[in-house]
């Protein structure tokens, strides 16, 4: 079923919307969740919660891209579960490894910059991402939005693992420089 038809079912408050969403996107969303959470049962629960969160969000929302809209929800829910389960101790999953990589560039302490509006930071990140060559952007998002393993991200971007690692390192440095230029203290 086309995404527009699924979204129409949500707007009609037809519960087939969830059935169709599950049929089309379960594998995709489960991969997003399982990259963050090691436990399959936790991942399954986050995907199920994604459907209900979507049900409660559409309407009023009308997603321009349903798969991305759902992936955002699954990612957020999975990170919340991970944080609850791993407060003070982060290891194991691709999410934990990605967090560690970013921590090398951005630190992990609480600074006054946390008071900045999240929207401003998100907008700055959007602007930065749009300055990147497409391959670099997709590698960066594969690693830090979807938390794919370095090996997998390198493979689907057509790069060697070493090349991808080097490019991610340079991109993190560029992001740091960009955000500093935009007035964010890192």
């Amino acid at each position: 079923m086309e995404d527009s038809e699924i979204i129409a079912l949500y707007w009609e408050r037809n519960e087939e919307a969830i059935t169709e969403t599950s049929a089309k996107y379960e594998a995709y969303l489960s991969k997003v969740a399982s990259n963050i959470l090691d436990d399959p049962e936790d991942s399954r629960e986050c995907v199920s919660d994604t459907y209900w969160k979507a049900w409660n969000s559409i309407p009023p929302h009308r997603p321009g891209n349903l798969s991305a809209f759902l992936a955002k929800i699954t990612r957020e829910l999975s990170i919340d579960v991970f944080r609850r389960q791993n407060s003070g101790k982060r290891q194991g999953s691709q999410y934990a490894l990605s967090l560690s990589e970013l921590g090398d560039s951005f630190g992990s302490g609480v600074t006054p910059e946390e008071q900045l509006e999240s929207r401003e930071l998100t907008q700055a990140i959007n602007r930065f991402l749009r300055t990147l060559p497409k391959d670099t952007r997709n590698l960066f998002l594969g690693r830090y939005f979807f938390f794919d393993s370095l090996k997998d991200a390198a493979a689907y971007c057509g790069m060697t693992e070493a090349g991808a690692k080097s490019l991610l390192h340079r991109t993190r440095k560029r992001l740091k420089a960009y955000l500093e230029k935009e007035g964010f203290t890192l």
Binding site: G103, F106, S108, L141
Partner: peptide, 10 residues
């Protein structure tokens, strides 16, 4: 910047 916040905003 807090890395968690960066991850959240991504």
């Amino acid at each position: 910047m807090n890395t968690d916040k960066l991850i959240h905003n991504l």
